[in-house]
């Protein structure tokens, strides 16, 4: 009689999903078709669905996007796919449905000592080597545009202190640095 499961106990074994012996285990039933969830997705409120089922539900009521179980706000790009072991390739007959949204992978936090070590590729590495203290500002502001994970605040902070000390001197350093970098590129 359970209206299918708060998805809470899902820790207890995701491998069970899709295995035929577990027909009685209703924890992994889709809340819409009441069958074992295929292409399973879970909403932010924790409710489990087949992706085709949920997609059709959201499609039926474009103006009222709510969870079919608890009526919490729900949206297609905020569901999380569940990739159980051995349950990836289940062709669904109702497959006129856009692909299930992918999982969102975040790279683990990289806590290197100095930010400069994070991007040791090519010429940048070299400019770091030479640009001791005064160039710190330039090198780091140059690297600012880089896509790598870094902490620009550190370098910028140093630059600001420099500017406060003597704008003229720092301007000269800036030019020197610019010329130096140009030289690096052309050399």
């Amino acid at each position: 009689m359970v209206i299918a499961s708060e998805a809470g106990p899902s820790k207890s074994g995701r491998e069970k999903e899709g295995s035929p012996e577990e027909k009685d285990d209703r924890t992994f039933e889709c809340n819409i078709c009441l069958d074992t969830a295929k292409d399973a997705v879970v909403s932010m409120c924790g409710h489990l669905f087949c992706w085709p089922c949920l997609h059709q539900w959201l499609d039926t009521r474009p103006t009222r996007q709510v969870c079919p179980v608890c009526k919490a706000a729900i949206s297609e790009d905020k569901v999380i796919p569940l990739y159980g072991r051995g349950s990836t390739k289940q062709e669904d007959p109702r497959n006129k449905v856009p692909p299930r949204p992918p999982g969102q992978r975040t790279e683990p936090e990289n806590n290197g000592g100095f930010p400069g070590f994070g991007f040791g590729d090519g010429g940048f590495h070299m400019s770091f080597g030479i640009g001791a203290f005064p160039f710190g500002f330039v090198t780091s502001s140059f690297n600012f545009g880089d896509h790598h994970h870094q902490r620009p605040a550190h370098g910028a902070g140093r630059g600001m202190a420099l500017l406060d000390e003597d704008p003229f001197v720092s301007k000269i350093f800036l030019w020197v640095a610019a010329i130096f970098i140009m030289w690096l590129f052309y050399a």
Binding site: I3, N31, I32, H47, C53, R64, V66, P68, V69, K71
Partner: peptide, 12 residues
């Protein structure tokens, strides 16, 4: 009517 949700059943 408008408050229907797909997880509701005959029983509910």
């Amino acid at each position: 009517r408008d408050q229907w949700a797909a997880a509701m059943t005959l029983r509910t």
